[in-house]
Nucleic acid binder design. Structure first.
Lengths: 200, 200
DNA sequence: ACTCCGTTTGACAATATTGTCAACAAAAGT
DNA sequence: ACTTTTGTTGACAATATTGTCAAACGGAGT
């Protein structure tokens, strides 16, 4: 018999932290957001730090698994890149504040996150980087440091999502529809950019 | 007779907040970092919020001014883009955590930052966007929503800087030199990407 | 020497936030 | 019916952080 409340608090905490972006939420806020008594947060997770760590690890693990699966999947290179774009988009839209937290944490000296992030540095990434290198030799994509291909991909997809509220401010994009129109043409555009400005 | 301490606290706060990335620094931490008594922070700036707001506004204003100057400067389009890349790089390397803070704040409902960010939405940007549109018609750069050109530029330059510690983790880039090697080829690469994959 | 001024300090009170605990409620097992 | 376990609550103590204030300091001007 699983405890519903425990899972419920976890799910709501995920949303509060990484979707809504209240990274410094107090236990009271977390409890309110989950609609439970504050003490329950401590009852199930001992401390706020612990809850945060659990929630964070879960999301990172999920992400890592999905990326790894794409890296080694049995499809063409181009299809892999498309899958990466799609998944990155979906993931970033779900948890736009995860990276924000990552960056802040990594900056702090006393970060124990290394242990969580470190295994991201996995063989699947290496495998895919080799594939990128081959494509560069074939001339399918421009030849640079292979890592820069991935950095470009991440940057062109993630940044606009994470920065959405900022971009809307500085470019005076008043309606959500306007931003969507601008954003919708990005996937195709990014594919074109990555693949040597050659369509299909 | 200017007060040195006031300016000194402000400068150190800038570094602590937006370079080191301790956005949630306590007044004690700020004071320690500036090497002064904690009470002085309140003496000169009334409250922590106020200090933060002053510091933040100063940086934003500086950035805005510089961007605007580039947008309307009397050089070729290509040179403007180069100047934008250079300044963005320099600025982000100086204050990598400014955007992080922006994003977090914009997410909070009670943000008074609008008033600071809003004027970023200035005529100079509009002017440059028109210039981008013309270049697209000329075929110098790929034709998309003009804003996407700027978004691409910002993304390709800013994201790798802001994400540097993360990228080093997930790509296992152990030494600073390694990252520099990868990063150094980016400016030229970004120019090539933006200008239709055509060199010069 | 004295006074005035801006500057600096330590001590204080107000507040917020944390984790714990003992008591209570509800469900499950006997 | 009872006991045991699990879940839930309010109250509490410990801690951290804030802003204020009165007092001390130090130099410039008289």
């Amino acid at each position: 018999m699983e405890c519903l409340t425990e899972e419920h608090i976890k799910q709501r905490a995920k949303v509060l932290f990484f979707t809504t972006g209240i990274l410094d939420a107090s236990t009271q806020e977390i409890a309110d957001f989950a609609g439970v008594n504050r003490t329950l947060v401590n009852y199930y997770f001992r401390s706020k730090k612990n809850l945060f760590h659990i929630v964070y690890t879960e999301i990172i693990t999920e992400m890592r698994t999905n990326f790894a699966a794409i890296y080694v999947s049995n499809v063409t290179f181009r299809e892999k890149v498309e899958a990466l774009i799609d998944y990155t988009t979906e993931f970033r839209e779900t948890y736009p504040f995860l990276e924000i937290f990552n960056i802040q944490e990594t900056s702090k000296l006393n970060n124990r996150l290394e242990t969580v992030l470190r295994p991201t540095c996995m063989e699947e990434t290496g495998f895919f980087l080799k594939e990128i290198e081959e494509e560069m030799k074939k001339g399918t994509i421009p030849a640079y440091e292979p890592i820069n291909f991935l950095i470009n991909l991440m940057s062109l997809i993630s940044f606009p999502i994470v920065m959405k509220p900022i971009f809307r401010e500085i470019f005076c994009i008043s309606t959500e529809e306007q931003y969507q129109r601008i954003y919708n043409q990005r996937k195709e555009m990014v594919m074109t950019i990555l693949f040597n400005n050659v369509n299909q």
